[in-house]
Write a protein that binds this DNA or RNA. Sequence first.
DNA 1: CAGTATCCTGTCCGATACTG
DNA 2: CAGTATCGGACAGGATACTG
Lengths: 168, 168
Amino acid sequence: MQKTSYEGMQCPIARSLERVGEWWSMLILRETLFGFTRFYELEENLGIAPNMLSRRLNALVEAGMLEKCAYTTRPIRYEYKPTDRARDFADVLLALLSFGNRHFAPEGKSVTVIHDETGIEAVPVMVDARTGIPLASPAYRWVAGPLASQSTRERYATDRRLGSSGLA
Amino acid sequence: MQKTSYEGMQCPIARSLERVGEWWSMLILRETLFGFTRFYELEENLGIAPNMLSRRLNALVEAGMLEKCAYTTRPIRYEYKPTDRARDFADVLLALLSFGNRHFAPEGKSVTVIHDETGIEAVPVMVDARTGIPLASPAYRWVAGPLASQSTRERYATDRRLGSSGLA
DNA sequence: CAGTATCCTGTCCGATACTG
DNA sequence: CAGTATCGGACAGGATACTG
C-alpha cells in the first residue's frame, strides 16, 4: 500500500483503494457505521494499537470519511462520526462480508445480514438500481469514458464484461 | 497488511481482506476477469514489476482465486484463469468502482458500467436478491451467528443496522 | 516471452511508554 | 480516557539483472 504505487492512478477502483485500502480502515469504518465512534470503543472492539488507531482515524478524517466532533469539553473529547461518504461505502463492506461468508468461512458464518421482518438471511448481490439486473452479468459492459487514459481506452475498446464465462 | 494482524480473525470482512486485501491483488483479479490472463498482458496493463506480479499471482492461485493453466508447451507457458471464486469477487470490485466514481473522480468518471442494450449508465447498489431491497437500509440487520466469538456476539446484541442515520 | 533472484525502500503495524 | 512519541519488525512493492 505504498503511495508511489497508486499516485496518479485514474482507475476508480485504485482510487478507492487509495483512500480506504488499508487493512484497518475498512474495519474502522464498519465500526463507526454501527455507532461505535469513540476511541476506546474502537480500540476495544478491534484490538488495534492506539497509535495505529490514531493514525488511521486521522487519515479517514482527511479522506472525508469521518468527521471529528467534540462530544464533551473539559476535558475535550472527540468522536468520529461517519460522513455520507462513509455511509456510501457500506456496499463495499457488504460485498466483502458476503464474499467472505461464501468462500472463507469453513466452520460457518459468524456474521450475516438478515431481513428484519422475516428473519430470513439476505442473499447479497450487486444490481443496477434502475433495472434490478445483476451487474456481474453479460447484460452489462464496462466502458472507458473520454477522461480515461489512452491505454485504458484501448483496453476497453473490445467488449469487457463480467459474468460471461467464455470471456478469455 | 501483516499476517499477524488478521490471523485467527473470524470476521468475514477481515477474512476476505486476508486473501485479497493487497493492493495489486484486486487489480489483477479485475484484469483476469476481463480476459487478460497472461503474464505479459498483466504486466503491461498494470505496469507492475515482474517480481511483484509473480508473487501476487502465486498468492492468488494459493487462495483459490486463479487457476494456473498451461496454454502452450515447448516452451511451457501458463495463463491464470479466474476461478468461480474470483468471479464471485466481482461484486466487491463493482462496489469499489462505484464508490470511487461517486467520491473520488474529481475530473469525471474514467470507467463506468453501462447497460448494453440501452447504453444507459448503471446505478450500482447492493440488494437482497430475494427481495430487491437495498441491504444498506434499516430493513436489514447484521447478526452474529453461534460461531461468532463471545465478544462479537455481545457487540451485535443490540440492533446493528446500516442506513439508519441516527444510529449512534 | 515468462518468469526468478537480489537488493532496497517505504510504511503498515505492533509493543510499549508517556502525557493531560 | 484519549491520545502522542518512539522503537523495531515484517513485508508490500520497486528497480534491476538474469535465465530458459
